[in-house]
Structure formats: C-alpha cells, structure tokens
C-alpha cells in the first residue's frame, strides 16, 4: 500500500483528506504564521455542510458572523489580506442583510485554496517538517 505521506504529495486535496496530513500541514503553516488559512478553508466547508440542512437559520447567521469576524473583518489578518476586496464586500453585504447564502463563502474559499495550491502546498512538500516526517 502507498504510505500516507506519498499520497499527501499527490494533491492538496489528498493532503486535506487525511487527519495526519492536516496536522502536519498545520504545523508547517503555523511556522509561516498562516495556519488561519487552513482553518478558514475548513470553516467554509463546514458552513456549506450546515447550509445543506433544513432549518437552524439562527445558527447559520451566528456562524457566518463568527467566520466573518475572525477571518475577514480585520484587514491585516492573513486570510483577509489574500481575499479580493469585491469578495469581502459580497460577504459583508450578505451578513448585513442577514442573508446567509450557501455560496456566500465559496469565492473566498476558492481564493484561499488557490493560494495554498500555488504557494503554501508546494512549499510544504519541500519543507523540513514534511521531509523529516518522510
């Protein structure tokens, strides 16, 4: 069988599909001061999952606000700095109108994912954290 660490090198998706891979990637991102990108990515996925359930509107609004406050509101945050102004405005509008749309974080998640795929992920695969693990 293929060892997990080789699977992690196949794609970002393979890495994020494995608990140990996530943990190691987080260790690396912490060193780079950008672990929030990973948490934001998972928060967006979790939000979408919640969205697919009926009801619970109050919880959805509360969660959308919490995600916005923690990762997007502060322009100096590592996530906020990477998200396009138009995307941030869109999310802010949704929150302001208390209109929690299933797609409200999708664009922001895609932007962060692209950045991880093009930047953090390749760096991770050549990092000491990963190489020592292998």
């Amino acid at each position: 069988p293929t060892p997990p660490y080789l699977k992690w090198a196949e794609s970002l998706h393979s890495l994020l599909d494995d608990q140990d891979g996530i943990q190691l990637f987080r260790t690396f991102l912490r060193q780079e001061d950008c672990a929030d990108m990973l948490d934001f990515w998972f928060a967006c996925s979790g939000f979408r999952k919640l969205e697919s359930h009926e009801g619970n509107e109050e919880k959805k609004v509360k969660l959308a606000k919490a995600i916005y406050k923690k990762y997007i509101l502060d322009n100096s945050g590592v996530v906020s700095r990477q998200i396009k102004p138009a995307t941030k405005s869109f999310i802010k509008d949704c929150i302001g109108k208390l209109h929690v749309d299933p797609a409200m974080f999708e664009q922001a998640q895609t932007e962060i994912q692209t950045l991880m795929e093009e930047n953090s992920y390749p760096l991770f695969l050549t990092s000491d954290v990963y190489l020592e693990h292998t």
Binding site: I22, A43, S45, K49, L50, L63, K65, A66, K69
Partner: peptide
C-alpha cells in the same frame, strides 16, 4: 465570545475527515 469560538471550532471540526 466563547460560544462564537465554540461554534466556529465545531464548524471546522465538522469539515475534517474522520479518522480512518
């Protein structure tokens, strides 16, 4: 603040893959 953090943490955990 605490409950917001808890909610966020719960949300992040819900999106993580389950232990294989």
């Amino acid at each position: 603040i605490d409950s917001e953090d808890d909610l966020l943490q719960e949300c992040i955990s819900s999106a993580m893959p389950k232990k294989k």
